Simulated scan of single mutants.
Amino acid sequence: MTVQAIDETTWLTANVRPAGRLGRDDVDRLRALLDALSASASMIVLDLAATSLRAAGAVGAAGAIDDAAAQLEARGGCLLCVNADDDTCARLSGCRHAVVVGQGAPRPVGAPA
């Protein structure tokens, strides 16, 4: 696959909000979605507020997320996981390319707690 740089003048951001518990059976669907989005988006925001990673699928899900993040990063983009609970943050701690942010963090300076 040829890696093309992202057009710096036009960004396409995709927001994805999975719901429920992601397990081993869901990893292929997650990977297919992230692969498709990372091929055309500049940034993917994966909102994890409504989901949790089951132990059986956590390694596969983390791999799918990090692979898509690496593809975006190679083109100058980013995959940002937001609203991850403590358990999900721990399960995604091995991601080297995805940015994982816990629930409610970070807050803009001066924003109410």
Rank of each mutant, 00 (worst) to 15 (best):
L37Y: 10
G20T: 06
G20N: 03
R17V: 06
D26I: 04
D47M: 04
V16Y: 09
Q71W: 11
Q71A: 15
S42W: 02
L48A: 08
P18F: 02
A70E: 10
S40G: 15
V27T: 06
T51W: 02
A56N: 12
A70Y: 13
S38C: 02
N15C: 10
L34P: 04
A36T: 15
D28L: 04
L30P: 10
M43D: 08
M43W: 11
G57Y: 07
T51M: 01
T9F: 11
A69V: 06
V59N: 14
L53V: 01
A32F: 09
G20C: 00
N15Y: 15
V16E: 07
L37S: 07
D67H: 13
D47L: 00
G20M: 01
A61H: 04
S42M: 01
V45I: 09
A14L: 02
W11L: 04
M43K: 14
G60C: 01
A36P: 04
D28S: 15
G57S: 03
V27R: 02
R17G: 09
L53A: 04
I44V: 04
D28R: 14
G63E: 06
L46F: 11
A55D: 11
L22A: 06
R21S: 10
D66K: 08
L48I: 04
L34N: 08
R21D: 07
I65W: 05
L34D: 06
L12F: 09
R31A: 12
D26M: 03
A39R: 14
N15G: 12
L12M: 06
R17M: 02
A61L: 00
R31H: 14
T51F: 01
A50S: 15
A70R: 15
D66V: 03
D35Q: 12
A32M: 08
A36R: 13
A39W: 08
W11E: 11
L37C: 03
T9L: 05
V59I: 13
A61I: 01
A70S: 12
D66T: 08
V27D: 00
A39T: 15
D67V: 07
A69R: 03
Q71E: 12
T9R: 14
R21H: 10
L12W: 07
L46W: 10
V59G: 14
S38I: 02
L34C: 02
R29D: 15
A14S: 11
S42D: 01
R29L: 08
I65K: 03
R29N: 15
L34T: 10
G60F: 01
L48Q: 05
L34H: 09
R29V: 10
P18M: 00
D26F: 07
R54C: 03
W11K: 13
D35I: 09
A19G: 12
N15M: 08
T51E: 00
A69K: 03
T10R: 14
L12G: 10
T51H: 05
R31D: 12
D67W: 05
G57V: 02
R54P: 05
W11H: 14
A58H: 05
L37T: 10
V59E: 13
A39H: 13
P18G: 03
A64H: 09
M43N: 12
W11G: 10
T9M: 06
D26W: 07
V45K: 08
A55P: 10
L34W: 09
A70T: 14
